[in-house]
Amino acid sequence: MKIVIGSDHAAYKMKEHIKEYLKNKGIEVIDEGPYSEDRVDYPIYAKKVCEKVVNKEADYGILMCGTGLGMSIAANKVKGIRATLAYYPKMAELARQHNNANVLVLGGRTMGFELAEWTVDTFLETSFEGGRHEKRINLISEMEENL
Rank of each mutant, 00 (worst) to 15 (best):
A58P: 01
M71V: 11
H133C: 00
E142V: 03
T84Y: 08
S72A: 14
G130Y: 08
A116H: 05
L139N: 12
K52I: 09
K47F: 03
L85R: 11
Y87A: 08
G112R: 14
A10W: 06
S141H: 13
K25T: 04
S141N: 15
V4C: 11
P89I: 12
E129H: 12
K15N: 08
D31V: 07
G112Q: 15
V53F: 06
E57I: 06
K25C: 03
E129Q: 11
D31F: 01
Y45V: 04
Y21S: 10
A46W: 01
V54T: 06
S127E: 14
D121S: 04
I5F: 00
G68I: 07
F113Q: 11
L124H: 01
V29C: 13
A83T: 07
A74L: 10
K2D: 03
N76G: 08
R132A: 08
E142D: 13
V4F: 05
P89V: 02
G61L: 06
E117Q: 11
E28C: 01
N24P: 06
M71T: 11
G131C: 01
K23Y: 02
I81A: 06
G6F: 00
S141G: 03
K23S: 10
G33F: 11
P34K: 09
S127H: 09
E28T: 11
H9C: 08
H98F: 04
T119Q: 01
E114S: 14
Y60D: 09
G107F: 14
G108T: 11
Q97V: 01
A10Q: 12
